[in-house]
Amino acid sequence: MGYSKNWKWGMIFILPWFLGFCILQAYPLIMSLYYSFTDFSILGSGDFVGLDNYIRLFTKDKYFIKSLTVTFKYALISVPMKLLMALIVAMILNMKLKAINLFRTVYYLPSIMGGSVAISILWKFMFMKEGMVNGFLGIFGIEGPDWLGNQNMSLITICLLVVWQFGSSMVLFLAGLQNIPTDLYEAADMDGAGKIMQFFKITLPMLTPVIFFNLIMQIIHALQEFTSAAIITGGGPNHATYLMGVKIYEDAFRSLKMGYASATSWVLFVIILLITMLIFRSSDAWVFYNDGRD
């Protein structure tokens, strides 16, 4: 493949990032890889231990596999739910309703609140055994589960929190919807295509770059998720919400095993990289770009 006519311009344009990468990002990345072969403890200088950390991870750490399982479960539940939710709401909020600005803002509120202390207290109130959600279910005679204390429920509860904060994906879908030229719909209307048909034939294909982006990003984030579990359950009970992000953080800053945490992180890195590459490979088949390339 040949380079484009103005390829030197392209290189100039990416220069800020390239400098940023070389000056600010490369060193920490390389160091963390180096630490993964040492017993670095933040304070100590760290002796080289070869592959010890990696070997220990796969042979001696019974929480590694558990944590990996929990993380995959979390990603498998939360990512599709969040994207679906975001897409549906974006479609509706793209309609010409009265006070639509207000609604769009209201739907973004949970995301604005992020992982604040208010959220962590509120979430406990909502989902504790005698909390608001179970009180609400009680009205219909349903005895609700112990959302946070039950090993089988707590991960779902964490997922609910992040699904409820679907705002950023929604914003991207909304922005994506604006990029679909209206004349496509006009033409479809003239051809007599129904709304559902239009959704599948126009909206969805035109949104695939955004869907693709959201999917990649949400997976990368989900596999590293830390905040939601840290503020609500702290990884418990009995490691039921012990996400990789939580494990890495605790190993690094609680047990001060930065070398070990780095090794765990690089294993996670490889996993995320493989999954991302897989999705990138598949994108040729289902992502539609308007720029007439690839």
Binding site: M1, W7, I14, A261
Partner: peptide, 27 residues
């Protein structure tokens, strides 16, 4: 720069950029 131009090592640089997101901040 990434979206509209084709220059040497673009795929590698793009991959490098995306992969900087894949390592947990804690480490």
């Amino acid at each position: 720069g990434f979206a509209r131009f084709n220059f040497p090592a673009k795929r590698i640089l793009f991959g490098l950029m995306i992969s900087t997101m894949m390592l947990p901040d804690a480490v």
